[in-house]
Design a protein around this nucleic acid. Sequence first.
DNA 1: CAGTGGTCTAGACCACGCT
DNA 2: GCGTGGTCTAGACCACTGA
Lengths: 236, 236
Amino acid sequence: MNKFNLIFKDLEEKIRQGIYQEGDLLPSENELTKTYDVSRETVRKALNLLLEHGYIQKQQGKGSIVLPTGQYQFPVSGLTSYKELERSQGIKGNTKVIVNDYLSFPDVLREESDMPEVAEVQYILRERLVNGEVLILDKDYFDPAIVPHIPTEVAEDSIYAYLEGVHHLDISYAKKTITVEPATTEDKELMQLQEPFVVVVRSDVYLDDTRLFQHTESRHRLDRFKFVEFARRRNV
Amino acid sequence: MNKFNLIFKDLEEKIRQGIYQEGDLLPSENELTKTYDVSRETVRKALNLLLEHGYIQKQQGKGSIVLPTGQYQFPVSGLTSYKELERSQGIKGNTKVIVNDYLSFPDVLREESDMPEVAEVQYILRERLVNGEVLILDKDYFDPAIVPHIPTEVAEDSIYAYLEGVHHLDISYAKKTITVEPATTEDKELMQLQEPFVVVVRSDVYLDDTRLFQHTESRHRLDRFKFVEFARRRNV
DNA sequence: CAGTGGTCTAGACCACGCT
DNA sequence: GCGTGGTCTAGACCACTGA
């Protein structure tokens, strides 16, 4: 791991533990330079990560102020797998694989994804349960030309950990959309819906080398859906 | 404007104009160093902005690849005012101010916002129309201890341009949530809703000095709501 | 191997806040 | 005036790609 990332993790940990509290000023960049025995630009790269994640706010002439980190923890936004969310948020959930099979290229990918047409895709349908309730239905489509076969045991655990850890795929970025759509019969059956709508989060997920390897359709019970984002203003 | 921002804007413009096309490699960092007559770190800051905005993908040993920039243009995510969205997306919309008045501190702020209790707030209710249809209802609450009075003419145009340009407030970051909620009578009347639900985007908006100055509740017709995000994977 | 991006350094000058 | 963060530089070494 590089230095600025280590410093970021260290400061993040100290903020989470309350060693630096809301409203406190972090040590100045010059002090951090000495503490970690690195150059100032390296300290600043670490502080920029804290800034982007909403941990601090910087003010010229004053210092870096620690922001409140509400009860919810990020990132509901971003590109994070469900298993990782569970871990970082302390949710205890269950995942049940309903389908794990190969399909000939389905229409939904033609319409909702940029994935180039291939003969067949690996299709995984999963239920996400929290406290015995099915809150999310996840439909994943993988391009088998890029992604090795994903066994059901892996799909019950973490697919991303498997692809990154075991097969060394470099998952890099995603294009996501969120819409609200009428619930299908499948939605109603599997999620025991009260409401006629579901929230649909669709993602095209890309590797480091810009290859599109996965499309995901994540269907949420709307009464339990909540998306949280920390956003910074940019020069428009 | 600083150098890396100027370089970013220049390269962004060239990508938008198709001077650099999807799949092309940008000139190498060394070449850009010469082109703009700056140091390499400065070039890299500009490229990082392109990276975060989803314009390029970098690969060690190869270069910076230009990504496709779909028809939709960001940022629907982030902290951008409706007027700015209109401009960057080429939407022609209308804004109609329904209410512009002072209220004693309303319950909704106690429940949905971190705004500290003050005697009264400025309340602005606006309709956003596109092609004659009301798509969004915006409810803004401003802390008058921080924000000068906002006249109705300004609310019909751009409040952020007014606060930043005229009063030099430094708008910095926001905490946002997206949920789906039952439509109120007001929603149904003003938006002529077919559906019993609306998408609600709530934001607490902060200044540079971490003061919370605004809460916004943006109520969307769910059949016309679409949220688009570009997300990068981070080390978890 | 040459060329690319990734990281890091030591130092400089500036703009801002506070006292 | 002093300490803070914001910007920029010139140079170094490393890891990776592709011929």
